[in-house]
């Protein structure tokens, strides 16, 4: 097996074009998954590309209509950047602890594609566009279209995420609510992110994303659209039908961290809590 530290992003794409490499960014997921006995090397099953020191992929740039985040930008850096939306920061500060946040990246979170990944939840909420490149080609895709299941993405072996774009939006209220086993250093049992923009009592933009309740993050754009343009009270009066719309999609599992009954109940509580309090501004 080959282990390579590319010197430039261009060189990284060059290696990737061979189709045999796995990209390691922060390593916080891959090093755990491929853990071996201490004092022995990690048991990776394919060629590895260590891109951690490609500083050219570390940037946060305000592009007017969107925020461009380089793939290797770590959570701690995002937390300190003024242009990063508050709701994303509310989420990031609850991810693991500082030492993990210093190497953890949104791109890595996407690559890992865990349904319980908090960062990914926020990317769904914020309509994140991913810039994905391979040698000589580039595509852009909505986050929903890249993650297809637990640990599954549409990224090919030759591709890597170069940049994450967050379209600018204005919200009158946002919410990130996560239940972990404890208040830090915890993988979500269930997590919720919501955002709304209300103007003159009319709901102009409504978004809700729920994590760890299905194989991918649940975001129902059609339900959100249905209630866009309604008055606050009209939306709140529809709480039963809104929750009903989510019923087929909230299908959590039992595991070592929680159980399906609890996850389901709390997911609906979170939806209701957000809808019924969406008029109370931050």
């Amino acid at each position: 097996m080959k282990h390579v530290i590319p010197k430039t992003y261009k060189e990284a794409l060059e290696h990737l074009s061979e189709g045999t490499y796995k990209v390691l960014a922060g390593g916080t997921d891959l090093m755990v998954k491929n853990r071996s006995w201490s004092e022995t090397p990690a048991r990776f099953k394919q060629d590895m590309l260590y891109i951690h020191n490609l500083d050219e992929l570390r940037y946060v740039e305000d592009k007017g209509d969107h925020l461009a985040i380089g793939a290797l930008t770590d959570y701690e850096t995002l937390l300190r950047h003024e242009a990063v939306p508050k709701v994303l920061k509310d989420c990031l500060i609850e991810i693991a602890g500082p030492a993990i946040r210093k190497v953890g990246t949104l791109a890595g979170n996407i690559g890992n594609a865990s349904p319980a990944a908090d960062g990914v939840l926020l990317l769904y909420l914020l309509d994140a566009q991913l810039v994905i490149e391979r040698k000589g080609a580039r595509r852009e895709a909505l986050i929903d279209d890249v993650i297809t299941g637990p640990g599954k993405t549409t990224l090919s072996n030759e591709e890597m995420i170069k940049e994450i774009r967050l379209p600018k939006s204005t919200f009158t209220k946002t919410q990130f609510l996560k239940v972990g086993g404890r208040k830090a250093d915890a993988i979500s049992k269930v997590a919720f992110a919501g955002a709304v923009r209300i103007e003159d009592g009319i709901v102009k933009d409504l978004r809700m994303a729920i994590g760890a309740v299905n194989v991918t993050v649940v975001r129902l754009r059609e339900v959100e659209k249905l209630h866009t343009g309604e008055t606050i009270s009209a939306v709140q009066d529809s709480i039963v039908s809104i929750k009903n719309a989510y019923v087929p999609h909230i299908k959590p599992i039992d595991d070592q961290r929680s159980n399906r009954v609890y996850r389901k109940r709390v997911a609906f509580n979170m939806i209701e809590d957000f809808i019924m309090n969406m008029h109370i501004q931050d």
């Binding site: 390691l24 916080t28 990690a42 020191n53 210093k102």
Partner: peptide
């Protein structure tokens, strides 16, 4: 965090850091 070291002045867990990331 018992393995935490500073990389470029910031806290990192060295048990999750492959040597390939330290160059």
């Amino acid at each position: 965090g018992a393995c935490a070291v500073l990389i470029d002045g910031q806290l990192v867990n060295s048990c999750l850091l492959p040597l390939g990331s330290v160059e």
